[in-house]
Design a protein around this nucleic acid. Structure first.
Lengths: 106, 106
DNA sequence: CCATAGCGCAACCCATCAGTTGCACATCGA
DNA sequence: TCGATGTGCAACTGATGGGTTGCGCTATGG
């Protein structure tokens, strides 16, 4: 069974904000990200950990800093799942099934 | 702000199962769906309600039955969001931005 | 007309989660 | 060397969510 933890990771608004921030703002540390949000650094760390378990970000230590970077492969998998579900109901989604085939969809 | 309740709806495995079931099995009632799952009808009703609030299903009353049907438009929106976030990092996702443009201009 | 099938509402458990605070450990720079 | 900055670990609280049970209401159909 696939088990799409990506959706669980994207279910939280703060995590989506972090993702977009990392996507078009470039890699950053938890302290930096916390400075731009109304929550503490620890909360950001927990969210980044959740994103890391969903393989949506990777962490790389540089000296005393830990820099987080986007890794969008799971997003493509999520698109594949969506295409498989909605393909027979939506023509646009059906078009995606060719490129984003998820292996375990029947 | 944006608020993508679709991801929250898709974050639960049972809800994803219900969606796929309704997608390739056709419309069904909560009682029917509960018979195919290891949970009670009330639990299924709650999940269907969550899916309905995310506009992923619609409910139509027929006599004493309530029939649920898939409405995949929000799935296309979700694809648009994903394409916008991962587009500059993944070439396949970048290709989606043309078709699934959401008003998320930077 | 009445038993039955299907649904809605409400209260209630229990687990998970977002977020906080406090403190200890590591590293950089002057 | 020593203070400042950055991170890690742990415990705690409040809220949300998945799931259950119980009961009452509304259709259906013989």
């Amino acid at each position: 069974m696939t088990g799409e933890p990506v959706f669980a990771a994207l279910s939280d608004a703060t995590r989506r904000t972090l993702l977009t921030r990392l996507a078009d703002g470039g890699p950053a540390t938890a302290t930096q990200l916390a400075a731009e949000l109304p929550i503490t650094r620890q909360a950001v760390v927990k969210h980044l950990e959740a994103l890391r378990e969903a393989r949506l970000v990777t962490s790389a230590r540089a000296g005393r800093e830990v820099r987080y970077t986007v890794t969008p492969e799971p997003l493509a998998d999520a698109v594949g799942w969506i295409a498989d579900v909605g393909g027979q109901w939506d023509s646009r989604l059906a078009a995606l099934q060719a490129q984003f085939s998820s292996p375990r969809a029947k």
